[in-house]
């Protein structure tokens, strides 16, 4: 066993902070985490910001500026293990909607003085810039899954995070399939992890956790069309929180215009 506690760092890129908040939201378990690691760098939780190197880095957010693209390289060099958390860090986030439009035009329509804004044309996931040891999807990440990943890395085992559909979790929960009952739902192509919340409240899945393993998005789009969804509905469904995830981006493109 190491003589010192593993040093944990939490970094933020373009994001809403919600995934970091999931960590703070752990409450009782957060005390256990504070006991198991040295929280060396976590600006959201503590004003103590110790320098690297770190044993474990959690990275939230996507890369949207040239400065961010440099900063992540430095963080990677300082981190023994790097885990990305959330839809922004793993897929580019909702801000990746810019990837399908003219970013400069968007800036001009939002900001009075767009020349003050320095930004990249695309929002990209961390793994496109540096090697990542584990990606945990979600908007936000599920705190139980986050604790599972942390516990696994601390003890040196593989995290138990399934890449199956939301449907399997709906069935385990005992929720009748809302899609079969006529409500458009992205569950059959979406990565599990949220606990299948929306269908339990009679809503279709919004795809917050991004694509599951081998998603058959084309077939799901056909199913949606049969429920009465228009081409535009299908396009917008895939242009959501994880729009830039390749499988969803491709299906969104197929229903564009």
């Amino acid at each position: 066993m190491a003589a010192h506690k593993p040093r944990l760092a939490v970094f933020k890129f373009a994001s809403c902070d919600g995934c970091q908040l999931s960590l703070l939201d752990c409450e009782d378990e957060f005390l256990a985490l504070a006991g198991a690691v040295e929280i060396a760098y976590f600006p959201e939780a503590s004003s103590t910001m110790a320098k690297g190197p770190y044993d474990l880095a959690l990275v939230e957010g996507s890369i949207t500026t040239a400065h961010d693209a440099q900063r992540i390289l430095k963080i990677r060099r300082q981190s023994k293990r790097l885990i990305t958390i959330g839809a922004c860090a793993t897929a580019g986030g909702i801000q990746a909607l810019r990837n399908f439009a003219d970013a400069q035009e968007m800036l001009a329509s939002v900001y009075a003085s767009p020349h003050y804004i320095s930004t990249l044309a695309k929002s990209t996931p961390i793994a496109l810039h540096v090697p990542v040891d584990f990606e945990l999807p979600g908007c936000p990440v599920n705190k139980a899954e986050l604790l599972e990943v942390l516990s696994a890395f601390l003890i040196g085992r593989k995290p138990v995070i399934g890449a199956h559909s939301v449907c399997m979790d709906c069935k385990a929960r005992g929720t009748p399939c809302v899609l079969v009952q006529g409500t458009p739902c992205l569950g059959p192509v979406t990565h599990a992890g949220c606990g299948a919340i929306c269908p339990a409240y009679r809503r279709g899945c919004y795809g917050c956790f991004g694509p599951m393993e081998q998603p058959n998005t084309a077939s799901l789009a056909t199913v949606w069309a049969k429920t009465g969804a228009t081409k535009r509905d299908i396009h917008r469904a895939f242009r959501g929180i994880t729009a830039a995830a390749p499988a969803f981006a491709k299906e969104g493109d197929a229903h564009d215009g």
């Binding site: 449907c167 399997m168 399939c177 058959n216």
Partner: peptide, 13 residues
């Protein structure tokens, strides 16, 4: 396989 979503619903029910 062009239609199957591989979602696992059939096995769960």
């Amino acid at each position: 396989a062009t239609r199957c979503l591989s979602c696992g619903n059939c096995t769960m029910v």
